[in-house]
Design a protein around this nucleic acid. Structure first.
Length: 856
RNA sequence: GCCCGCGUGGUGGAAUGGUAGACACAGGGGACUUAAAAUCCCCAGGCAGAAAUGCCGUGCCGGUUCGAAUCCGGCCGCGGGUACCA
């Protein structure tokens, strides 16, 4: 007898699908459409298990939806611009374009053997001029619509490499390559006005019914709507033009506990002061070395510098507060200035203790307990805003109020007394899209001495990246590419210069889903196609994109609607979102030759396990680090190609879907793939036996019941993204089928159903079995089996009996036995009789069909 | 720091207010075999016990409930995001 040969059958069926155009997405009115999309990959060089997991999940949905009668759109593309291509060019030479397209070719070749139901005719890369040219057209339309503007913003500047660094390239305040201390530098940059849509993006979260609530919560917190008071302190003898400091606070109820005013080192007043004061200049320079990331700013030691200036408290002109320049205050949020109330904010309290500033509580716990007040050395008192507290220095006398009420009272009081006004602010900042890099979509504008900033004419799009660039000198090669940079003004025709900044790669990924609906259109989208295929019915990707990518896409869809590139219904482009867990792996590192703090990372395949610990081939001992998301930079990646070539794609697919629930992280371990392969061979063997035998048997009806139960359970698993649960049920049904003594006809029917139920996960094996058992046509086009409800119900059920909430026994009763009868039977159970010991139960809980609990 | 998750046997996990450990992996025992591989069958949370059975048990502490892995409060640990990694 022959054997299961994955390599042979997988190639055969992939060809069959291709010949039949099985996965080509077609518009037609006779079927409902279904658009399933997985977040497209960055072409890093090789596919990894995270890709296999992500795309297999999408494939299960896509294949299932085809078999339930949908026109399915399931495309694939490449998020192809970005820093790694430039880094590779600098490190190993070559050109980012070559590196990227080579990587794409390799990864496509690695992906195709997975047998994914992708319509490859729609494939594109974001670095294709056909794609980014349309993105430039979108930019021009959005600029015209007033959705884009320019302003100054800070970047990380490496003074040695003379280049702008990404946040991840700043390590402990130093440039990753040069090791130089990073400075903050201001540049004029392009911005999307996403903050104009703060309220709408926040409110619309409520309409995203099929998004995970954790993602919705993260987005809501990120947008960060807050209500507060904005007012000005008057500065005593303030320098020219700085006689007031505008502050914003979300806790105006603590105003009577204010102790200092803090301003950002980037605040105009700080900049004014540092001009004439070397100490202030030195302090601000020190602050600017922290870099631009919120994380670095917040984690840095909180430092302040007393400017010597004082402000008057708005409600007590004799009360003076010092102005500190403080390194933890962000110029981008609120007004870049705050007042600190140490009693009710731990950060302010730490600051006050460090600089010996007063601590005054404005409220205390409602019920006097053992709470140590902050003025007596306790921690800052920060109760939830909905908890009632006792205001001792509030704005409504000696009262018990919640924090929220206290804030309302404070705002009303301040407004009535002419001290500022209540305002609503959002944390969300405008989206800066300028990048001082080569490998991105050129921003299609021209700087003209006559006309100012002018958009390129659409007929001149795409503004193509020049190929003749080199990366031997740090910085953006576009800046020094004279023949590319120098051009004529589209408006007046005089000599002018191109913008040399390129776009943030988040722009590329903010509309690719729309482009897939008409990838060859001469305009960014084609309305008829967008109208038919949008929205994405199921979007699948990593939770690491919960905020930025998804929020930017939501904004971009609105902007594309305003500029008439998407229909109204598509302003929320993703009807359902599923965030898969990440594939994680241990990390392996050895000490860096130059520095004890830095590590050199190693691939799992380069680490040899031995009795005296893990080492490299040359014997260097390896330190095992934490289990984290597989990433190229930490090298903790596993190559799925080996698994596919050894066991076949179906095994790899089956393995990544089994065991771990899809939303949870899965730690990759080498064991398990073999087990999956064994199971698939077993299924093949069982089917092959059934195909060759023809005999009567017994228990046909039991097998049919098990089959219908399996149809029901597996379908439910797929519908609810419980692929691991579906697979567990498939194991169980396979065991039942193998042990069944039923006749050939019933077994054949069961095995064909098994093949169908497995087909979204193991499509090649399923086609093979389907054909082996005489199934007609491709299983990929065969309608999904439907469970017969009548076969699902058992007439007898087993009820557990608890005594005081602990399971002690069980009884089997007919399904519709009355509650009284169940109670009677339960009281005769010997465990219950023993527990009662002749007495009466205190209480009896009978939940029909569920459980019996006897309280004794 | 802040925001969001997660934590269950040796391992991956099941159970989302109602029988904790389904289904697998690794392990142990057995059948088949000259032998091995493959395959098939059985065992398997911990402690005690010959067994029946009893007690303990879902990161830790406390609460709500007839009943909590599940809900609430407080900790601890790990992971993701933190606006120029994608």
């Amino acid at each position: 007898m022959s054997q299961y040969n994955a390599g042979q059958i997988e190639k055969k069926w992939q060809q069959a699908w291709e010949q039949a155009d099985t996965f080509k997405a077609v518009r037609s009115d006779d079927k409902p459409k279904y658009y399933v999309l997985e977040m497209f990959p960055y072409p890093s060089g090789r596919i990894h298990m995270g890709h296999v997991r992500n795309y297999t999940m999408g494939d299960v949905i896509a294949r299932y939806k085809i078999s339930t009668g949908h026109n399915v759109l399931h495309p694939m593309g490449w998020d192809a611009f970005g820093m790694p291509a430039e880094n590779a060019a600098m490190e190993i030479g070559g050109h980012p374009k070559t590196w990227t397209y080579d990587n794409i070719a390799v990864m496509r070749d690695q992906m195709k053997p997975l047998g994914l139901s992708i319509d490859w005719s729609r494939e594109f890369a974001t670095c294709d001029p056909e794609y980014y040219g349309q993105q430039q057209a979108l930019f021009i339309d959005m600029l015209d619509a007033g959705l884009i503007y320019r302003k100054n913003a800070v970047v990380n500047w490496d003074p040695v490499d003379m280049t702008v660094l990404a946040n991840e390239q700043v390590i402990d305040g130093k440039g990753w390559r040069s090791g130089a201390e990073v400075e903050r530098r201001e540049l004029t940059q392009w911005f999307f006005k996403i903050s104009d849509y703060s309220e709408e993006l926040l409110d619309a979260i409520d309409t995203l019914d099929n998004w995970p609530s954790k993602v919705k919560l993260m987005q809501a917190n990120w947008i960060g709507k807050s209500r507060g008071l904005q007012f000005a302190f008057s500065v005593i003898d303030g320098p020219d033009g700085h006689d007031r400091v505008e502050v914003y606070t979300t806790r105006p109820d603590t105003l009577m506990g204010a102790s200092f005013v803090g301003i950002s080192p980037d605040h105009p007043m700080a900049k004014h002061l540092e001009k004439d004061n070397a100490d202030i200049a030195a302090f601000c320079a020190e602050c600017r070395k922290i870099g631009t990331s919120e994380e670095a700013l917040e984690k840095a030691e909180k430092l302040g510098f007393d400017t010597g200036l004082r402000v008057r408290h708005p409600f007590d002109t004799a009360w003076e507060l010092p102005i500190y320049i403080a390194n933890f205050i962000l110029m981008d949020y609120g007004t870049g200035a705050i007042f600190g109330c140490p009693a009710h904010d731990q950060r302010d309290l730490d600051f006050a203790r460090k600089y010996d500033l007063p601590v005054v509580s404005t409220y205390a716990p409602a019920v006097a307990d053992n709470h140590v007040m902050p003025e007596d050395g306790g921690a800052a008192y920060v109760p939830p805003k909905l908890e009632k507290v006792h205001y001792v220095k509030g704005f409504a006398g000696d009262e018990m109020q919640t924090g929220d009420q206290g804030i309302d009272t404070a705002i009303a009081f301040c407004e009535a007394n002419g001290v500022g006004q209540g305002v609503t602010k959002f944390r969300l900042r405008d989206w800066g899209l300028s990048r001082q890099r080569y490998w991105g979509c050129p921003i299609p504008v021209i700087h003209c001495n006559n006309c100012g900033v002018v958009a390129e004419k659409k007929e001149n799009l795409p503004v193509q990246l020049p190929d003749d660039v080199s990366f031997d000198i740090p910085g953006n090669p576009l800046d020094r590419h004279a023949t590319w940079r120098d051009t004529d003004c589209p408006s007046c025709g005089k000599p002018a210069k191109r913008e040399t900044d390129t776009m943030d790669t988040f722009v590329d990924s903010s509309w690719y889903f729309a482009r897939f609906t008409a990838p060859d259109a001469a305009t960014p989208t084609n309305m008829a196609d967008a109208d038919y295929w949008m929205n994405v019915d199921q979007y699948i990707g990593g939770v690491e994109h919960a905020i930025l990518h998804l929020l930017y896409s939501r904004f971009f869809a609105r902007a594309m609607h305003i500029t008439e590139h998407l229909p109204k219904k598509a302003i929320e482009p993703f009807n359902a979102l599923f965030t898969q867990g990440m594939v994680t792996h241990e990390t392996y590192s050895t000490a860096h030759p130059d520095s004890n703090d830095r590590r050199v990372w190693h691939l799992p395949e380069d680490v040899i396990r031995s009795d005296d610990g893990p080492k490299l081939a040359n014997g260097t001992p390896v330190e095992i680090g934490p289990v984290i998301k597989m990433s190229k930079s930490k090298k903790n990646v596993v190559d799925p190609v080996n698994i596919i070539s050894t066991y076949g794609a179906d095994t790899a697919r089956w393995f990544v879907l089994s065991d771990s629930p899809p939303e949870r992280d899965v730690e990759w371990t080498a064991s398990g793939a073999e087990a999956a392969a064994k199971h698939l061979s077993r299924v093949w063997r069982i089917a092959s036996d059934i195909a060759q035998n023809d005999a009567a048997g017994s228990g046909d009806d039991d097998l049919r019941r098990a089959m219908h139960k399996a149809i029901f359970d597996v379908t439910q698993g797929i519908e609810s993204f419980g692929f691991n649960a579906s697979i567990a049920k498939l194991y169980a049904f396979t065991n039942t089928l193998q042990k069944s003594k039923a006749g050939s006809a019933a077994k054949r029917e069961a095995a064909k159903t098994l093949a169908q139920l497995m087909s979204p996960m193991t499509p090649h094996l399923s086609e093979e079995i389907w054909t082996m058992l005489g199934g007609e046509g491709l299983i990929a086009n065969t309608p999904w089996p439907v469970a017969d409800e009548a076969m699902l119900v058992d007439d007898k059920i087993t009820l557990p009996i608890q005594i005081n909430g602990k399971r002690k026994s069980e009884i089997t009763v007919t399904k519709d036995l009355s509650k009284d009868e169940v109670e009677k039977l339960a009281l005769q159970d010997k465990a219950v009789v023993r527990a009662l010991d002749g007495g009466q139960p205190k209480k009896m809980i009978v939940v029909p069909g569920r459980i019996i609990n006897v309280v004794v």
